[in-house]
Design a protein around this nucleic acid. Sequence first.
DNA 1: CCAACTGTAACAGATATTATTACAGTAACC
DNA 2: GGTTACTGTAATAATATCTGTTACAGTTGG
Lengths: 141, 141
Amino acid sequence: MNSEFIIAVHSLVLLAHRPDGMASSEEIASNVCTNPVRVRKVMSCLRKNGFVDTREGSGGGYRLIREPGDMTLADVYRALAAGSLAPSWCSGDPNADCLVGSNMGEVMNAVFCGADQQLETYFQSITIGQMLSRLTAKARA
Amino acid sequence: MNSEFIIAVHSLVLLAHRPDGMASSEEIASNVCTNPVRVRKVMSCLRKNGFVDTREGSGGGYRLIREPGDMTLADVYRALAAGSLAPSWCSGDPNADCLVGSNMGEVMNAVFCGADQQLETYFQSITIGQMLSRLTAKARA
DNA sequence: CCAACTGTAACAGATATTATTACAGTAACC
DNA sequence: GGTTACTGTAATAATATCTGTTACAGTTGG
């Protein structure tokens, strides 16, 4: 799994937690524990996918433009981590003179596609708003 | 995802395809397209988990000792890739003075645990025998 | 104009993955 | 008993991926 997914989710939850729904890349980076450049790269992708709005220039930053309760982790997953389940490595060789070796790559691929969908279904059941609720629940405990 | 999982599944399917259920690490490696040492490492783990039997010495190799129809990908996943979903990287800092930053690591972890279980459930529905069937189906097509 | 931002690219450093080499141990077979 | 063909495992090297850093152009508010 891509760790950009984690950064994206964390950032969105942080924005949802802010009263005005805004934060700069530096603020986010400090909260996430990474560097601003990485955050900007991820946020840039979130902007292209309609999660946030960007304001460049002084006093700028990112602003959440979707309802926390309407954004699911599946939306985020699709935006920047879909298909990341299968390893880059692939077994077998299509030109092999063996039933198993020659077709395993394709069959394994189908298995991972299914797994990816399964994951997406699971992520669909968790919203950014719920993540925030879980955090506050932890904090109260 | 761990690519050893792929090697393990491929190897088990290959063994299941052999009339006598046997193959050496070199034969398997050549079919999988990797090196024998890597195969031996994976098979060593499969042996410890009761999937195969090992015969050292001349004419030796690995032999399947479970029914292909009874082994699911979930069994293999548990044996050598469980928990591999979450990235090594973890966001936030437990000591942060922020509701979000301080608890995100734990909450995210819970999310990935759930995802892992979801995956396992999916893999439970696919047996090594079915994988072999899919391969023969592809070959006939 | 200046200060505080985002957007990117290019590079460096760290970590993880895969392959290779080496060698001890074991079993069949002559 | 020696030779051959295997497994088991450690150590190392090569490669790829991931993460952090630096640099700088573009944008906007004051």
